[in-house]
């Protein structure tokens, strides 16, 4: 292209004063770095610094009196033997599965439905995104009332089918289900929209060819849509993994803003455990060590889910 040759020609135009040429060289060399520097300054202050210091704190023992003592890996070994920590891990992983599996399946089918020729297309898409723009705490408050034992709507409806009123908050599995529905209500529509975007990049002639070969609609979905959707799926699953394993707002609000996660800690997540250790017990070292273990949990979760998604739909 002739455009590539133009700049050199211009740089040699004689009427440009030398000072200006020097300045323009500096501009070309230094400006790119100047423009990205605000981000990297912030990155150093609020990214690298907290990560490095979380590691540093995790090697010390803090107590309420404010004394600090070198502890080595003691916080980590203590955590690995701490029943409360493992309880939080089990709760987090349990709620993650309970929320994510139905959520992604529903989102997939919803996206497939949204991909049809529809009237009121924008209105329907906006409605399924509505949950995303409402505040988490507000929604958790509403759901908590819907799940109330004595007058909640959910128990009232279950009553039609002869189910006795459940005490959703007091028991482990019911509380997980309640919290999972809050998470799903918020994220199913969002994930459906993301899947929909992925579906629209699949070439239409693939479907036409399959239809000519006599493949049914269902078969087309499993054999074409699903495998072609894999990149989108990876994005969605990794997103859900990070979000799900750092779950905090819903379970905290479910217990009126308390990070204990129920009377027996039956729905305390790891994020809540960290906040409790750090900001109620003021055991900063312990909380910091737990934060690193949470990060490890996320890495493991992301890896496992990534491998799982890669297998979906085979490798054709």
């Amino acid at each position: 292209m002739s455009i590539d040759t133009l700049p050199r020609a211009v740089r040699h135009t004689p009427h440009r004063p030398p000072g200006r040429r020097w300045r323009s060289r500096l501009d070309v060399k230094a400006m790119p770095y100047t423009l990205v520097s605000p981000y990297f300054i912030l990155f150093a202050a609020f990214g690298l610094f907290p990560l490095a210091f979380t590691l540093y704190y995790s090697l010390y023992d803090y107590d309420l009196a404010g004394t600090t003592e070198w502890a080595g890996l003691e916080n980590y070994t203590k955590l690995l033997a701490d029943e409360d920590f493992w309880n939080a891990v089990v709760n987090t992983v349990g709620m993650f599965f309970l929320a994510t599996v139905p959520q992604l399946l529903l989102a997939l089918f919803l996206a497939n439905a949204l991909n049809k020729r529809l009237r009121l297309r924008l209105a329907i898409r906006m409605s399924v995104l509505l949950p995303l723009v409402t505040s988490v705490v507000a929604v958790a408050v509403v759901f908590t009332q819907l799940y109330a034992r004595d007058w909640g709507l959910v128990n009232w409806i279950l009553g039609w089918f002869g189910v006795d009123a459940l005490n959703w908050r007091a028991e482990r599995i019911p509380s997980w289900i309640a919290i999972a529905t809050m998470v799903d209500w918020r994220w199913t529509g969002y994930n459906a929209i993301i899947f929909l975007a992925g579906m629209q990049t699949i070439p239409k002639d693939l479907y036409e060819a399959a239809a000519i070969d006599g493949a049914s609609r269902r078969r087309q979905f499993w054999q074409i849509t699903l495998p072609m959707l894999r990149p989108t799926m990876i994005f969605v699953v990794l997103n859900s993994t990070i979000g799900g394993l750092t779950l905090f707002s819903e379970p905290t609000t479910f217990y009126n803003g308390n990070v204990d996660g129920g009377s027996q800690g039956q729905f305390q997540t790891v994020a809540m455990f960290i906040v409790k250790q750090g900001f109620r017990e003021f055991d900063y070292g312990y909380a910091a060590a737990a934060a690193w273990l949470l990060f490890l949990l996320i890495l493991i979760g992301a890896f496992v889910n990534f491998m799982f998604v890669r297998r979906i739909g085979g490798t054709k």
Binding site: P50, T54, Y57, L238, T246, Y284, A291
Partner: peptide, 18 residues
């Protein structure tokens, strides 16, 4: 890479101390 790290959860302790 920074997008993959949940900084607000990971770094709460040092951020708070800061």
């Amino acid at each position: 890479l920074t997008m993959a790290v949940p900084l607000q959860q990971m770094g709460v302790v040092p951020l708070y101390r800061l």
